[in-house]
Nucleic acid binder design. Structure first.
Lengths: 326, 326
DNA sequence: CTGAAAGCGCTTACAG
DNA sequence: CTGAAAGCGCTTACAG
């Protein structure tokens, strides 16, 4: 299996390399007869364009990066597979590669230089932490980027998110409709937009709720529930701002002699796998991760195609998934 | 921020493009003084090599693919983050990109043509299904590939795996040491090497165990446990061939009035997140996924560097993680 | 609509 | 050890 070049295709088809190139790239300005000849030559030779050569002249890598936090934080994230799937779904058919980078020391810089040297056309940033300098650098250099989730500090960057506030409100209304009398919430970290918004949205619906803080980890969910049971033993409904925390909290409820949902109703957030591995299965707020990821890909592609196109934010509606816990 | 080329670096350093290229690529045959001059020029200009141009002449993409099953099957796999992390850990420092591809209709072919047209230097195949033609095609064309896990049908392909048989034996010995009298196992699918080996290894240790079949999904774990309780109500120890199945099985045990581990000891396999979301937390057999992924990367890199290097298989030792369930 | 030609930015024999 | 030159395989003005 030798490498077939455009040169050979052209020779076989009896046209110039330029014409062969045009049909490969679907230019409309090619005579039908010649087009057919070239197409025949392509399939008879098994021609595949050399991407590096093309890339050298088009100045496009036809590759985008997905910048993830490190493994440890990622393991807690149930959405990786859905994100990857959503992005590749729109990007692959266009011949664009998705390259994965996990943030280690210096890795974010890596991504930056990949962008600068044209190895990547753009990046999707998945979990920026509050003081992450990378988003600002990217927009300062005018490099195509989209954020998964609203940035903590306002900045002119396109992002896609779910309406966290509305999602939390959904949870609040659910608990009220269950006639819970003493309602509480276990929050996410308050230095993240999601953590903040889920609290805000919930409190708007249940202003007198008891608030205990967590940080989205399972352990923090368990700890917060212990604290809650101590300070507020008559609680009968709780919104836990992530399924993972709920997963840690429910066993604490059981050990404390409460049945879920009979004694205490529980609503989570994320509709992650943790919602299904909980016992009972979690009623939770669903984010359409795959759709959101696909939208991120589209937004990024748009920026790549049309540099300096306007900053956009797309916000998806969450929905309530009712299962057993509340 | 204009693109700086090697040409300019050479001019600034007062050397030829060839010499500049040599120091960029770390050739040892460059005079110290010139090397310094070039290095200074590189940092003063902020030079970054154009990968496409390099790739065009070296005929290397400096990118490898990770071929995954589709989202649905992937969601059940707890190891994605660890695999990605293990692979990027060895590959990134070398400037090699990891591109992710999820298997949809036609996607496996995509990967093949990416390989053929030099867009990818090699691929890691994560979940080949029994009749998957891709591995054979790859080896037929002499393309660099490594499999995650032993192939079902013997073929000359390099793979890395954990010693599944030994792992299952570990589980068997654990149950025996707990003085379980009536021992059973819920198996994985018997058309996969892992499913087969975990059964074989366990039966070697506990020949009289009751066998119920599952397919690695949570639902199948629940169903199998129901069946087990029906046919063998006095069971007091069970090895469940994946944590996910165990996660589905334990609630069935609880509903059946059994306490874990007091009435029935449970040992799982994988040490996945499902082991921690179970209640109680699972005693399980751990595979060193991250290390295994790193080894896959190394094996692949070796094949890329030295084509036609001998087929290798690397088998890692599993270990028992004792937690609460057994 | 088509082709001859230039050029994308690098690496690497080759000669010195 | 160094440089002039060829060449990697494509796309794209440009002229016709």
């Amino acid at each position: 299996m030798r490498r077939v070049t455009l040169e050979e295709v052209a020779r076989v088809a009896g046209v110039s390399r330029a014409t062969a190139s045009r049909v490969v790239n679907g230019a409309s300005t090619v005579d039908e007869a010649l087009r057919h000849a070239v197409e025949r030559a392509i399939s008879s030779t098994g021609y595949l364009p050399n991407i590096a050569a093309r890339s050298l002249v088009t100045r496009r890598a036809d590759a985008i990066g997905l910048l993830l936090p490190d493994e440890r934080r990622m393991l807690g994230d149930p959405h990786l597979a859905s994100v990857v799937s959503g992005v590749t779904g729109v990007v692959r058919p266009l011949g664009v590669h998705l390259v994965l980078m996990m943030t280690g020391p210096g890795t974010r810089e890596q991504a930056l230089s990949d962008l600068r040297c044209g190895r990547l056309d753009g990046v999707i940033l998945v979990h920026t932490y509050p003081s992450d300098p990378v988003p600002r650098q990217l927009i300062a250099e005018g490099l195509p980027v989209v954020l998964a989730g609203r940035p903590l500090d306002p900045m002119p960057i396109t992002y896609v998110d779910v309406d966290q506030t509305a999602g939390a409100a959904l949870a609040g209304r659910r608990l009220k409709s269950l006639r819970c009398g003493k309602i509480a919430t276990i929050t996410g970290p308050q230095d993240t937009p999601a953590g903040q918004d889920r609290l805000t949205g919930f409190m708007a619906e249940v202003p007198d709720a008891v608030v205990v803080h967590g940080d989205f980890t399972r352990q923090s969910g368990a700890a917060a529930m212990e604290q809650l049971l101590r300070c507020c033993p008559d609680v009968d409904g709780v919104f836990i701002a992530s399924d993972l925390m709920a997963n840690g909290a429910i066993p604490v409820l059981h050990r404390g002699g409460r049945k879920v949902p009979d004694d205490v109703a529980v609503v989570g957030f994320d509709d992650s796998t943790a919602a299904l591995t909980s016992e009972p299965e979690l009623t939770t707020v669903r984010q359409p991760i795959s759709d959101m990821a696909a939208e991120m890909a589209r937004q990024l592609l748009r920026q790549i195609t049309k540099p300096r196109s306007p900053v956009t934010s797309v916000v998806f509606e969450p929905s309530l998934v009712v299962r057993e816990s509340g």
